[in-house]
Amino acid sequence: MCLAIPSKLISKEGTKGEIEIGNIKREVNLTLLPEVRIGDYVLVHAGFAISKVDEKDVQELLKLLSMADIDLGCGKI
């Protein structure tokens, strides 16, 4: 039911939109995510966009993970 792959919103008209995953285009309903913009990456569930990928958070997480050692307050183990 749930597509864990973020897909790009390529068109938007009211609550109707279209997403692209790879080369496949699919209709998506935007009722639950009215503020989304064309070009945003969204998570789609049962035909509805439910959340938008936050690019800033992607970069922050990747930076954190690639640091020499991830300090999670456990001290030197």
Partner: peptide, 25 residues
């Protein structure tokens, strides 16, 4: 890490998709 620190909190690793309050709409 939480278990090691004997702590129990809610952490969010998936901030690129999930917020604290969720999808209000």
């Amino acid at each position: 890490s939480q278990i090691y620190r004997k702590e129990a909190i809610v952490e969010n690793e998936y901030t690129r998709i999930v917020t604290q309050k969720g999808n209000l709409k």
